[in-house]
Write a protein that binds this DNA or RNA. Sequence first.
DNA 1: CAGCATCCTTCCGGATACTG
DNA 2: CAGTATCCGGAAGGATGCTG
Lengths: 135, 135
Amino acid sequence: MTETTLEMARAEIDPEAACPIAPVVDIVFSRWTTPILWALNEYGRQRFVELERRITSITPKVLTQRLRQLERDGLVVRTYHPEVPPRVEYEISELGRSLAPLFASLAEWAAGNLEKVERARQDYDGREPLPGRRA
Amino acid sequence: MTETTLEMARAEIDPEAACPIAPVVDIVFSRWTTPILWALNEYGRQRFVELERRITSITPKVLTQRLRQLERDGLVVRTYHPEVPPRVEYEISELGRSLAPLFASLAEWAAGNLEKVERARQDYDGREPLPGRRA
DNA sequence: CAGCATCCTTCCGGATACTG
DNA sequence: CAGTATCCGGAAGGATGCTG
């Protein structure tokens, strides 16, 4: 398997990640990319403003940046219509769509375990500082 | 002033209005958490220095911050041994271990599709600017 | 409408020095 | 060893103004 060797080589070259999924995380789970991909996968081809309105609290500048990145990585397809006013549409690519089951698993994990995380936090915040921590 | 701004990061502006998996992404895929969880899941209970050495290029300060966060979220268990010199061990929790299949799926996706991403990038960088972009 | 340019602020995260 | 405290630089991200 050439891919295994590639993985190993990459892990060796990039030592900060002795972790083979680090590159994917960079690509798929960097800031804002998840909501964007989710929106495109869930609601289909959309214009810039639609995405902007759907993903509240993202600024147009950042949305543009992220869409460029996703387009460059082949996860999103951008279509420009030379009209007046101009119209641009974004849709998820086939490669991007291949992430759907992964996202579904993630949603499933969230549904089952997010509550536990919340309880762990309250537990942690509630108890007194333990030995070996602070003074 | 302490740098416990992780809780501020928690206070994400965007409730899961756009995307239901956003909270999980914040918890599991924030900076450095993936290599840490991977190391703990792969190599079992470890001391602070072991993690530090395994995850090269992470500073002790940041490692501490991330371990605190993971402990608070219930994904990692910290054990303090009151000895001289002090000894602290970290291990993945049951909740943390429940992420393993997810990580495996991610690794699988990476093995099959990372190459496509790389090709998409080269393609994107190689072709001339398209209409609707720059002037 | 889409998005680029510019300025400006915030905020990690690195480096260093110091304790129990 | 396993941290904490402090300072600081660079990059991410917000706000504004302007084009095709």
